[in-house]
Design a protein around this nucleic acid. Structure first.
Lengths: 204, 186
DNA sequence: GCTTTAAAAAGTAAACT
DNA sequence: AGTTTACTTTATAAAGC
């Protein structure tokens, strides 16, 4: 009986230590990503829910913690791409994506697809672009999405192309390379999306 | 009446069977020209047929998995060729081993572009997986027939997980109904 | 969970010319 | 900048780690 008590305390301690580790990792990654405290709190709630629903079995603590943070960013409307999240995590991007899809399904998060517009302020300010360019990029995204060009396309690539196009239109030109670097997509992707978008805008 | 159901093409059929006889895969790898056997990687021996084109995974237990065939008839033909090859090596093979179709992958064209964002919300986020950052297709799990449908912006779709030839047809009719009811079939 | 096999869809990416 | 090759997703069996 004494052993059972000790075992329970031991596992309780281990579980407590694991939870503390996960929460400190969420904090570390959130700081590195520069997301507000509210997002860390949402991520912590998601992680605790995953823990209570026994979703961590067979998965790494770090993977679930990273996915919870990725989900929290989306839920709070300030998404980070899987690439960006993977950069501050020690879990490979592929596993983060898989784990995210799993916990999202199991917890019924029902997060809507990421809106490319949500990347515009962050990417544009990283490039030192004006409010005018941001507004133009947002307009390009709205118009081309309405014409059905968004289906299946990556939100970051779509946003990057719109920012590139807007920078040209507003005479604040950034090169495809510069935009590609902040959005972490290739110049080829920007070129492809850009061509479709300017056509949708009735330019060219 | 021509509709999306008429555009269905079977792309891959997976089936399993067994010859009712244990096999020495090391010896078989030497006797079967073109056989790939790397027990360190995978316990099955890989053997490909040219006509019909298919790939078979042959296991020590005598169980066989056939993939890559374009029809159920092709599965039977390809496995027939393999059974005869084994018999030619004086390996006793059951007269007519039972062949079970495990999965059929089909493609089809709905003939309209699809707004996947609207579709994700309309079909119900709980039954949908749409992560364009990871994959351009929307994944929809249907209960009856129990299949998984991948939908693309072009209106092209993939139906997988079905075991019967008509599962794809039923699924296409059903998904067209659901999309049409949402007013998302332009 | 993973390993291997096949096939389609469309996007993204890297390595070449 | 264009082409080729390859990887992402879905399902499914097989034997073994």
């Amino acid at each position: 009986r004494l052993r059972k008590w000790q075992e329970r305390i031991r596992t309780k301690d281990a579980g407590e230590r694991n939870l503390q580790f996960a929460l400190s990792e969420i904090d570390r990654m959130a700081s590195a990503l520069g997301v507000p405290r509210s997002v860390r709190e949402v991520a912590s709630v998601i992680y605790r829910r995953a823990l209570n629903e026994d979703l961590i079995r067979g998965r790494s603590i770090e993977g679930v913690a990273t996915s919870a943070l990725y989900a929290a960013c989306r839920q709070e409307g300030i998404p980070r791409s899987l690439d960006e999240v993977a950069e501050v995590s020690r879990v490979p991007q592929k596993e983060i994506g898989r784990t995210y899809r799993y916990i999202s399904q199991e917890l019924g998060l029902e997060l809507k697809p990421v809106d490319p517009k949500q990347f515009v302020p962050r990417f544009a300010s990283a490039l030192g672009l004006s409010e005018e360019v941001q507004a133009k990029a947002t307009e390009i995204i709205d118009v081309s999405a309405e014409q059905g060009l968004l289906s299946g396309k990556s939100p970051t690539g779509f946003a990057a192309a719109a920012i590139y196009a807007a920078s040209l239109l507003c005479n604040e030109k950034k090169t495809q390379r510069e935009v590609a670097d902040v959005a972490q997509v290739t110049e080829v992707t920007i070129r492809n999306r850009y061509q479709e978008q300017i056509e949708a805008m009735g330019f060219r | 009446m021509s509709g999306p159901a008429d555009s269905i093409e079977i792309q891959n059929v997976v089936a399993s069977t067994g010859i009712g006889q244990e096999l020495d895969l090391e010896a078989l790898a030497d006797d079967l020209p073109g056989a790939d056997f790397n027990p360190d990687n995978f316990p099955g021996l890989v053997y490909r047929t040219q006509d019909p084109k298919a790939a078979a995974l042959i296991f020590r237990s005598g169980k066989i998995v056939c993939t890559g065939a374009k029809s159920i008839d092709d599965v039977h033909e390809a496995l027939g060729i393999i059974f005869d090859k084994l018999r030619g090596l004086s390996i006793p093979v059951d007269e007519a081993p039972e062949i079970t179709v495990q999965n059929i992958v089909s493609s089809a064209d709905l003939g309209h572009n699809l707004n996947l964002n609207a579709l994700a919300i309309g079909l119900g986020l709980e039954d949908v997986e749409y992560e364009p950052e990871q994959f351009p297709g929307l994944v929809y799990r249907m209960d009856e027939p129990k299949v998984v449908i991948l939908l693309f912006g072009s209106g092209k779709i993939v139906i997988t997980g079905g075991k019967r030839t008509d599962d794809a047809e039923t699924a296409v009719e059903e998904i067209v109904k659901r999309i049409d009811n949402l007013g998302l079939l332009d």
